[in-house]
Amino acid sequence: MIELWQKFTQIRLKTWLEISGLPKSSFYEWLEKLNKLDEEELKIVNMIKNIFEESNKTYGYRRITIKLKKLGIKINHKKVYRIMKENGLRCIKFTRRSRGYSSFKGEVGRIAENKLNRQFNVSNPNEVWGTDITEFKISGSDKKLYLSPIMDLFNSEIIYFNISTSPTVKFATDSLDKALKSLPKKHNLTIYSDQGFHYQHIHWVNRLEKRKVKQSMSRRGNCIDNSPMENFFGLLKQEMYYGQKFT
């Protein structure tokens, strides 16, 4: 086998070109193209490695594809997946799970109809907003921090957020008040949430009615109805909270 391979490698290029019927100019043209492709892929591989490291090894192929496109690199997510797999670039932080914060305290106010019904694809800004509350446990302490963001489903932008050591109704309505300041007078906004006591409260409901904002609530115990906010909290904690030490 070795001797046969040596014979093949000793055959001159001219002979191979005669056998294949390929012009010499075409051979060198394709050789140049292949070398160029190798250089371009090497450049992309290095960019992917840098983005992966800068994300503290938390970005998967989807997030890296988005980042590359923002940098002006047109690339298919399948190619990014292949390159990451070939180079051993694998997220290792997405293993921790913790019990989520629940603000449901029974029917303490008005529970709105589930008008959104998982229709999360939004074509215009200020068409559907989502909100929820999550908690962060402070290491070495019995204290907790609470985060209340309001997200526009059109582009997943966080319009406003509030942080507090106590998840009061005012804590939630403060976020809403700030977000509503950016809302045009003419709108067709629906804001959805879970059935937390903040969102059943008269102070929350009155603010929505005053600005003619429609309210939608997920069904009790069904986190999929509120999946955009749940996904946001999950990514947020995995990327910048779990495994980190804060003072």
Rank of each mutant, 00 (worst) to 15 (best):
G130V: 07
G130L: 06
G130H: 05
T131K: 10
T131R: 10
I133Q: 07
F136I: 09
F136G: 03
I138E: 10
I138G: 10
S139F: 14
S139H: 15
S141M: 15
D142H: 03
D142G: 02
K144W: 02
Y146W: 15
L147P: 01
P149D: 06
P149C: 05
I150T: 01
I150D: 00
M151W: 04
D152S: 00
L153S: 02
F154R: 03
F154Y: 14
F154I: 03
N155Q: 04
E157H: 00
E157Y: 00
I158G: 05
I159Y: 00
N162Y: 06
N162S: 01
N162E: 10
I163H: 05
I163D: 06
I163R: 03
S164A: 15
S164P: 10
T165H: 08
S166P: 07
P167A: 06
T168G: 04
T168Y: 04
F171W: 02
F171G: 02
D174F: 01
D174V: 01
S175C: 02
D177K: 15
A179S: 05
S182M: 03
S182K: 11
P184T: 14
P184V: 14
N188C: 01
L189G: 03
L189A: 03
L189Y: 03
T190E: 02
I191E: 07
I191K: 08
Y192E: 07
S193D: 09
S193I: 08
S193K: 08
D194I: 01
Q195H: 06
G196W: 04
H198P: 04
Q200I: 02
H201N: 14
H201L: 05
I202F: 12
H203L: 13
H203V: 11
W204D: 09
N206A: 14
N206P: 09
L208I: 11
L208P: 10
L208N: 10
K212R: 14
K212L: 12
V213H: 09
K214M: 13
K214E: 13
Q215H: 15
Q215I: 11
S216V: 06
S216Q: 07
M217E: 08
S218L: 02
R219N: 09
R220H: 01
R220L: 06
R220N: 01
N222F: 10
C223S: 14
I224L: 15
I224C: 10
D225A: 08
D225I: 06
N226E: 06
S227T: 09
P228T: 07
P228N: 08
E230D: 14
N231Y: 05
G234W: 08
L235C: 15
L236T: 09
K237C: 13
K237Y: 13
K237D: 12
